[in-house]
Design a protein around this nucleic acid. Structure first.
Lengths: 223, 223
DNA sequence: ATTATCTATAGATCTATAGATAATGC
DNA sequence: ATTATCTATAGATCTATAGATAATGC
C-alpha cells in the first residue's frame, strides 16, 4: 500500500495536474459518463454554432443528444457546464490535430514553417468552432473561463517552443523571451484572423495564398 | 431654390451615402431622437460590457438611460436595435479618435508608424468596447451585421491607404495589392489582440513595450 | 390637438428539479 | 436494490405593446 501511494505520488509529480475542470455527475459509471458527455458535446456544438449559446435551450440540447432534459441534468449541473465541455472539446481537437501534423520535422525553422501551415489549415477546417470560442468564452463562469484561457495559452506555447528550438539550432535569428512570446501569440492570432475576418479575407484570398503570404511575412521577421 | 437643390445634389454626389442603417422611431423631433438615443447608447454600453447583451434586460436599459421601458420602445423597435446603435457608436468613436491623431504626418512610413501607435493606444483605451464587438456582433440581425462589418472594413482601409502612400513616396518597399490588404488587416487585428489576449499579454508587456515590439516587427516587414 | 412618456400586463418562454418509471445486476 | 432515465411542472423571467396620462404649443 505504501508503494502504491508512493507510485501515485510519483506519477502526480511527473505529470502536471490534468488541466481540466471536474464536473460533478449523479451517474456512477465513468465510461457511461464519458459516452453521454461526448453525445452532448457533439450535438450541442452544432446548435451553438447555428444559434449561439443563449438562444439554444437546454431542451434542444437534450433532444439533439438523444435523451430527455432530465437525463441531461444527470451529466451536468447547468447549461454553462455544457458550454465548458464544448470549449474544452474544441481546444482538445485543435491541439491534437496541430501536434499530429508537426511530429516529424527538421530544423527549428523548418518545423515552424510546417507548424504554421498545419495550424492555419486546422483553423480553416475549424472556423466555426474558433468563432464560437471567441463569442461565448465570456458566458462561462469565472472558474471555467480560467481553464479555457489556460488551454488557449497552451496552444500558443506550441509555437513558442518551436521558436525556441529554431533559435537554439541557429536556423532562426536570436530572439529574447519577450520577442518569442509575442511572436507565438501573433502566429496563433493570425490563424484565428482567417476565421473571424473571413467575410473580408475569403473573397480576396484562397487559403493557400493566405498561408503563403502570412508565412513569408512571419518567417521574414525571423531570419 | 434651384441653387439649393443643385447644391444638395452636388453634396450627395460628392459624399458617399451615409453608411448607417436607419432605425424607425415614433418620435417626430429628430434632435430629441438623437439625444435620447445617445442616452440609450451611453447607458447601455456599460451594461453590455458588464453583463453581456443577452443578460441585460430591456428594463435595465431603459432605467439606466433614465426613462421607462415604454419610452425606450419609442426610439427603437427591438433590443437588437440598441445593440446595433451601440456597435455603430463604438466604431464611430474609434475611427474618430484614430483619424484625429494621424492628420499631421510626414512620409508614408512616418505616417504609418504614427498611425500604429495611435491605433494601438486607442485599442488600449477602448478594450472593453472592442471585446464587446467581438462577442456580440453575431447577435445582430443580418442586415445590421452587414453595416457593422462594413464599418470594421472602413477602419482597416485607413491602414491600407497609409501603406499605399508609403509605397507611392518610396518610404516603404514596393507592395502589391494583396500584400497591402493583408498588412492592413494584420495591423488592425494586432491592435485588437492587445484587448482580447490581455489576460496573457498584460502580465508580460506594458502597452509601450507592446507598441514598440509590434511596430518594429511590422515596419521591419515593410523596409 | 399633438407629441412624448408612463403604467400595467399579455403572452411566451426557459432552466432546473422532484418524483415516478424502467432497466440492470445481485 | 441500485442505477439510469423520463415526465411533468414549479417558479421565475423577459420582450414588446396597448391604453392611459402628462407636457407642449397653437
Amino acid at each position: 500500500m505504501s508503494t502504491l501511494a508512493g507510485g501515485r505520488t510519483r506519477l502526480k509529480a511527473l505529470k502536471p495536474a490534468e488541466p481540466t475542470r471536474d464536473i460533478p455527475t449523479a451517474v456512477k459509471d465513468p465510461a457511461l459518463v464519458a459516452k453521454r458527455r461526448r453525445q452532448i458535446v457533439d450535438a450541442t456544438v452544432q446548435l451553438f454554432i447555428k444559434k449561439g449559446f443563449h438562444k439554444t435551450t437546454t431542451r434542444e440540447m437534450a433532444q439533439a443528444a438523444g435523451f430527455s432534459i432530465g437525463t441531461l441534468y444527470e451529466y451536468v449541473a447547468s447549461k454553462e457546464d455544457v458550454l465548458y465541455l464544448v470549449c474544452q472539446a474544441i481546444h482538445d481537437e485543435m491541439e491534437d490535430r496541430l501536434r499530429q501534423r508537426i511530429r516529424h520535422a527538421g530544423s527549428g525553422a523548418q518545423a515552424l514553417a510546417a507548424a504554421i501551415e498545419a495550424y492555419f489549415s486546422v483553423c480553416d477546417q475549424m472556423s466555426d468552432h474558433i468563432l464560437l470560442i471567441y463569442q461565448e468564452t465570456k458566458s462561462l463562469p469565472p472558474e471555467s473561463m480560467r481553464f479555457v484561457l489556460a488551454h488557449e495559452e497552451r496552444i500558443t506555447q506550441v509555437f513558442a517552443e518551436l521558436l525556441d528550438r529554431g533559435v537554439g539550432d541557429y536556423s532562426l535569428r536570436p530572439l529574447n523571451r519577450a520577442e518569442i512570446e509575442l511572436m507565438a501569440h501573433n502566429i496563433a492570432v493570425l490563424g484565428h484572423m482567417w476565421t473571424f475576418r473571413r467575410w473580408s479575407l475569403r473573397p480576396r484570398f484562397s487559403l493557400e495564398q493566405y498561408i503563403a503570404l502570412q508565412s513569408e511575412l512571419i518567417l521574414g521577421q525571423l531570419r
